[in-house]
C-alpha cells in the first residue's frame, strides 16, 4: 500500500535523542488528528524502541538510528525504527515480558510489552551482528472533524 505521507530521521545513538525522536514522530503524526491518548501511546512506543537501540544495540558505542514514519490510508501509521547494532539472538525470548539482558541497569524488561500493548501490531526482525528493525503499526480512531 502506498503511503500518503512519509518522513525519515537519522540520528546518533545518544540518550538525549530519546526525547527528540518521540517528539518528532508525535509532531509528524499530529496531521492525523490523534487523541491525546493515541499520541501518548505512540510517543511511549517510539521511546521504548529508540531507547533499546541506545541501551542494547549500541551498548558501548555510538551508532546510527533511523526512524521512518509513514501515514497510510484508513488513518493508520507505520513506524519503523532501525539500528545496525548487535542484534538479538532469540527474538521470542527477548519479547517476553520482564526478560532483560541488562539486569544491573534497572531495566524492567517491559519495552517490548509496552510497544505491543500501546500499538496494534509489533514486528521485530533481527540478525546477530547486523542489527534490528522494529515496526509498529497503529490505526487511529476516526474523529468527527474530517480534515
Amino acid at each position: 500500500m502506498k503511503a500518503l505521507n512519509e518522513m525519515e530521521l537519522t540520528f546518533e545513538s545518544r540518550s538525549t535523542n530519546e526525547s527528540f525522536a518521540r517528539s518528532a514522530v508525535a509532531a509528524f503524526i499530529v496531521q492525523l488528528d490523534p487523541t491525546i491518548g493515541e499520541l501518548n501511546d505512540i510517543r511511549t512506543a517510539v521511546s521504548e524502541a529508540v531507547t533499546n537501540c541506545i541501551v542494547h544495540a549500541y551498548k558501548d558505542e555510538i551508532g546510527i538510528i533511523s526512524v521512518n514514519v509513514r501515514i497510510m490510508p484508513e488513518n493508520s501509521v507505520i513506524i519503523r525504527i532501525r539500528d545496525k547494532g548487535c542484534g538479538i539472538e532469540d527474538i521470542q525470548q527477548a519479547m517476553e515480558p520482564l526478560f532483560t539482558t541488562a539486569h544491573g541497569d534497572e531495566r524492567a524488561g517491559l519495552g517490548f510489552a509496552v510497544m505491543q500493548s500501546f500499538t496494534d501490531k509489533l514486528t521485530v526482525r533481527s540478525k546477530p551482528g547486523k542489527g534490528t528493525t522494529v515496526t509498529l503499526k497503529k490505526t487511529l480512531s476516526r474523529r468527527l472533524s474530517d480534515g
Binding site: 518521540r22 521511546s47 531495566r107 519495552g111
Partner: peptide, 8 residues
C-alpha cells in the same frame, strides 16, 4: 511522560 525507564 514516562516510559518503562520510569518503571525501572
Amino acid at each position: 511522560f514516562m516510559d518503562s525507564s520510569g518503571i525501572g
